[in-house]
Amino acid sequence: MISRRRALQAGAGLAAAATFGAPAILHAETRTLKITTWGGKWGAIMKDTILPMFEKEHSCQVSADQAFPFLPKLQASPKNDPLYDVFHSNSNEQWSAVEQGLVMDKITVKEVPNVADVYPWAVSDKIVGVAIFTSAIGLGYRTDKGIAAPKSWKDLADPKLAGARGGYLIPVNSLGQCHLMMLGKVYGKGLQDLDAAYKALEQLKPIKLVDFTGQMEKMLLSGEVIEGVIHDSGVYRYEGANRQPVDFCSPSEGVMALEQVLNVTPGSKVKELAFAYIDFMLRPEVQKLLAEGVWYSPANKKVKLDAKYDAKLLTTPEKVATLIQPDWKWYNARKDDIDARVTKILKG
């Protein structure tokens, strides 16, 4: 990490060099790239393989923060010396961050050449920065509890599932927020039809609510929840030796996108390195490694996944077409009202 003092020292060195015309020795120190990244399996792959590869390639060090909460930490640090160079988060947080001027608006081909190869959703107007992966938010369900495989989002309202359906604490979980918007689309005029969404949410009671997706996975595995809102990755990862009686359904109305977004902080002292890192993360071989590791759909069109992943992830233009991207700018602007309303609905 480059501390402010060190930056000041570097500045002083520059002044000295200018004064005396002595050869600058500013690059004597290894550059450090400060990033945020996920934990779990993703974190393990990053730590064991991907970050060492990048460090070797760029003769730098990567300091990867896996400790939440990233956004408040970034907010609290000085803008001209931000705590992170590359900010990795889900899309909704990028929208909050860009409004506070903490990250850049867009990452384009100019800075990151591999952006040329991404699907349109990865740089759409619903994205700040650039998305490198997405998950599909749909329904996870038990295959052994005598319920029919769901086909529609409406199936979650099946009275048989009373108390055994799973959702999220909407104020703290973006899957819950996506689900709410989807309810507006399915039962009303569209993603932004909140009145319809509230009404539909009322119909889902009684419902088990969790705050992390990890908890939803466990509730499905333990059978406490028979059908619940979850991202495909949270179900597909229990395969092979870990096979469990759970499966994922992409409802006919479409799946919501849960994008993994990278962005650069405007105050970063190593912007070139930061862009290089994003370019690296969009490289087909890196994308393949992570996509197959954690069952995320890659943003890069050129990635060729092994058959079993290819069959389930969103790897073709047709499959990508089922992806619905929420408008987080719209949602975040109403978040406080929505939070108050859904808390009241779900309290009873």
């Binding site: 399996k41 923060d65 996975e217 466990k218």
Partner: peptide
Amino acid sequence: LFLVVPKGETLPVVLFNYMKFDLD
């Protein structure tokens, strides 16, 4: 929460973050 650095997290912070991905 705010004062730990990467690779210098205390046990409660590590557990909290672990729990978000692997609740086992």
